[in-house]
Structures are given as structure tokens and as C-alpha cells.
Computed example of a mutant assay.
Amino acid sequence: MNAEPHDAPIAPDEPTTTADVPPKRRGWFGRRSGWVKALIMLGVLVVLVSSGVAGGAYLLVSRYENKVDRAALLPSAPAEEAARSKQNWESGALNLLLLGSDSRATEPGGTSPIGERSDTIMLVHIARDRDKATIISIPRDSYVEVPAGGSWKGGKNKINAAFAFGGAALTATTVQKLTGIPLDGAMIANFASIRDLVDAVGGVEVCVPYDVKSTFSDREWKQGCHAMDGAIAEEFMRQRYNVPGGDFGRIRNQQLVVQAVISKVARNNLLYKPLELDTLLGIAADSLTVDQSLDLRDLVFAVRDIRPRNITYATVPYTSAGLKTPAGSAVKLDDQAAAEMFAAVRDDTIDRWLAENPPREPGS
């Protein structure tokens, strides 16, 4: 009997996989482990309100709003910053923090037990014109300045350690310090939802651009298309070693599964089938914790005109995935390219920046 494919919490000295990872400015395509659950929630919402059923969107939000947990995920903001955020919700570009964790015991808004780390740290940028969105992953092992908070006295560490020491609020503070991007909201979602969502749509077909061999069973996915149920999709997404690009290949695998789920939802018109839609939204809502100040109706309004094809995925540029640090092997971000990317987000020109700085496939 093969063991269930679950990663252990990241120890401070856990090595970052570097096999097949190109050394320079590679890998800002794809996501971190666990990002899929948050993207699924956003993706289902985006598809829902942009598929001709937006008239009932507010009623649907009301139905599922009670299933969504609430917590203080963002630090207290000065009055001026709160006013700016309110204005952004009315007429400006929006930047949301999306976190993901496999832990079911951690209180998202509070201090997490040491060792509990966020597998996903993402920025969702919704353009001022509300016609497109960019989802940017910050590699979880990025070696950055983590401000003091919780039991942490401040200093350099892997960015996902912020969640361990000070919960979502310290992670948000760390992300804002790193990027210079004020946050207009925050959400946390549980990785367990992806398995249930794949099964809820009747399985998916995932087309893999390279060979992947499982480290949890004798399964192997050759280059080509493969039918997957929830359990197999979860196992596929957790592959970290026998995949081009190592941990960054796993990012790409997760993206492929999420795209397959959203495509299946659209292709089978599941949003127009009440029972199937109720199941999908129920799973998504059950997996989500939302900042106490985030109004889901405002979010529906913000994304109602965004089509799935206008959602762009990216990862912060890095120069190496084997930086030796007191916290163990870490990811060194490309300071210049990352600064350019963050500036483009602040200026609401990130789509142009990505077009001028095209991503590379893992291992290329």
C-alpha cells in the first residue's frame, strides 16, 4: 500500500530542490505548493460572475458567505491607508494576498505553531479597468527580510517562516515590505479542496509537457494527456523530485491541474447545472478563510467582467534555488527583475511587463 502523498512541514534546514533548475532569471512561471486551492476559489468565482449568470451572483454570495470563515488576516492599517484601500475598491487597481496551507489546525489569523508554514504566498492584482487579473506567486523559500512579529525578533529568513512565527498578519507585513505593494484584502484556502473539486467535476484530463515519475507510487505520467481523478491529481501535483525544474516543476504541474478543472467546468456548462454548481461552490467556500474586512460582494463586483482567459499567472523572478543561509537552502530572488515586477504591479502595468519579460517553462 503506497503512502498518501503529503509533504511534511518545512524544517529550517530542508534543502530546496535544484535539479534541472536553470541558474539565472528562471522560473517566474507557475505557483508554489498549495496555491491551487486559492486559485480554484478565485477561478470559480471569476467563471461564475462572467458566464452570463452575474445577475444571481449576489444571491449566490449570500448563500455561501456563511460557509466562509472570517479572521483578522491583515495588520491594522493607518487611517490614510484604509481610505486609499476604500478608494481602490471603488475605482482603482486592487491587490489581494492569497495564502494556502495544508494545516487544518492552524488559526489563520493568529500565531501559528512553529513549523506550520504557508505553502502558498500569492498576490492577486486586479486591473483598474476590471478586465484582467494577474496572479503572482512568491516562492515560499525566498530569503527575505521578515519583520519582527509574534515570537520572531526580525531579520532574514525564508518568507514562509513569517506564517509560522506571526500568522497571516506577519506574512502580509512581510509581503508589503518586500514588494512595496499595499494590500486591499487577504484570503487563506486549504489545499484539501483541490482533490474534492477534481472529483466534483468528474475528473479531469491533464496534458503534461514532460515526463513525471511519482515518488509516492509506481505511477508515471509520460508526456501527453492523462485522465485523473482527485486522488491521482493530488499525487501528480505533489511531485517535487522526478519532474523537470524540481520544486518549480511542481508549480507548473499544479497550474496544469487547475487549468484542467476550470476548462472542465466551462466545457460541461456546470455553472448552469444547479446541483453541480452547489457542490463546487460549497467545496470552495468550505476551504476559504477571508479577512474580516473583505466584502465578498465587492469582490464579485470587482471580477465580474474578467474572463478566465484574461487571468495571467506569474512567479517572482529568482536567480538561484540553492542559496545557503542560516535558515537552510533558500531561493535568492532576482532583486532587479523583482523590483521591476513589483513596480509594474503598483503602476497597474504588470501585463505589459510580463509581455516584455516572457516566462520560461521549468527545466528549459
Rank of each mutant, 00 (worst) to 15 (best):
L288E: 02
T289Y: 03
V290Q: 05
V290P: 00
V290I: 10
V290Y: 05
V290S: 08
D291L: 00
Q292H: 11
S293N: 13
S293G: 13
S293V: 05
L294Q: 10
D295K: 07
D295F: 02
D295I: 01
D295M: 05
L296R: 06
R297L: 14
R297M: 15
R297V: 13
R297A: 14
D298L: 12
D298G: 13
D298I: 04
L299I: 10
L299R: 04
V300C: 04
V300Y: 01
V300I: 08
A302V: 05
A302W: 06
A302D: 07
V303W: 03
V303I: 13
V303N: 00
V303G: 00
V303S: 02
R304M: 11
D305G: 10
I306M: 09
P308L: 05
N310S: 13
I311S: 03
I311N: 03
T312G: 05
T312W: 11
Y313K: 09
A314K: 01
A314S: 07
T315Y: 04
V316A: 10
V316F: 01
P317F: 00
Y318V: 01
T319V: 14
S320Y: 06
A321F: 01
G322M: 04
G322S: 14
L323G: 09
L323M: 14
T325I: 09
T325K: 06
A327W: 10
A327Y: 11
G328C: 03
S329Q: 13
V331F: 09
K332F: 10
D334M: 03
D335L: 08
D335F: 12
Q336G: 12
Q336A: 15
A339T: 11
E340Y: 06
E340K: 11
M341Y: 06
F342I: 02
A343G: 11
A344F: 07
V345Y: 07
R346Y: 13
D347G: 13
D348S: 09
D348P: 07
D348A: 09
T349L: 12
T349A: 11
T349P: 13
D351F: 11
D351K: 15
W353Q: 09
L354V: 00
